[in-house]
Design a protein around this nucleic acid. Structure first.
Lengths: 159, 159
DNA sequence: ATGATAACTTAGCACCCGTAACTATTAGTT
DNA sequence: AACTAATAGTTACGGGTGCTAAGTTATCAT
């Protein structure tokens, strides 16, 4: 019975998330320099502190090559820098440049303002439900394995 | 003040949705034939009844060319058919094939099962919050313009 | 018939994402 | 020390998503 409800919710997610995603992407695109959702998230993470490539990849739940490419794109834009740390010479540290920080600031301002327009009309309870739901989503998907599991989904949990 | 909270929520969305999206996409990909979220949604919509291309595009909030391309890809897979209606010979009707229906059934079963695994462990209140939040998201983004670039969206809305 | 408009398609561009294969560097064995 | 793993990244390649701009064909208005 829990099962049936879970499936309904799953279907909801499958329907709604892509829609939201497209809208958000359009928002960012319209916000000027279009740093695609992925770039935006990256800048956010990096603005806290520098990270090594692998960490970024697992944080965002993408493969290493994908992350390497994204970073390359962002380096070309002058938003981040690749740096070599002192110790292990295999790793690459990624750091935001001032330019990147400025871009993040600008885009985030625009995007949030735009999104806020959409959110503002909500009444209190609705907004409560929204943030509540987002919190749950975060809890669920923040630590999600995200990688395809084998036939028997025995909780890979081997990361 | 409403403003400030709205911005917080906006930031949340900007952070979480892409993550969820990636996970969902990975899920679908792992579910076998990888019909990318977009294809999946399309099949869902079309399984209710055939639609003309333009309607599909506005329903999913993408441009006509994008939709045309997606449909072409799906046609090649044998999931949908392009048909010419009797009346207006400019329009193209899109219809699901039995193959497409079967694929939808299969993938949706797998994806939902997988997602359900993630959702099932939630306790009642958490699941409530989740579905509540999803509902709000739907309300907000279902009718969203999404093509927002121009300041004054003239709301074509003649349909 | 002529011009505008509507519904699509094609082409070109930028980006996300993944797998496979390859380079460097470091760690572990013998 | 010499050889073999294991790590951290990069490159190459294929497929998907989106967009705009520039056609095509069909319909409508005058």
């Amino acid at each position: 019975m829990t099962r049936g409800q879970a499936r309904d919710t799953a279907r909801e997610i499958l329907e709604i998330i892509p829609l939201v995603m497209r809208t958000v992407a359009a928002e960012l695109r319209a916000a000027g320099e279009m740093p695609a959702p992925a770039h935006f998230g990256l800048l956010s993470v990096l603005s806290v502190r520098p990270r090594m490539l692998s960490d970024l990849a697992s944080l965002q739940g993408v493969s290493l090559p994908t992350m390497s490419n994204s970073i390359s794109a962002m380096v070309e834009r002058g938003w981040v820098r690749r740096e070599a740390p002192d110790g292990d010479r295999r790793v690459v540290m990624i750091d935001v440049t001032p330019t990147g920080r400025a871009a993040l600031e600008r885009v985030s301002r625009a995007a949030e303002a735009h999104l806020a327009d959409v959110i503002a009309p909500l009444d209190l309870p609705a907004r409560r439900r929204l943030t509540g739901g987002l919190g749950v989503l975060r809890k669920i998907f923040a630590a999600a394995p995200a990688s395809g599991s084998r036939k028997g989904h025995r909780t890979p949990a081997k990361r």
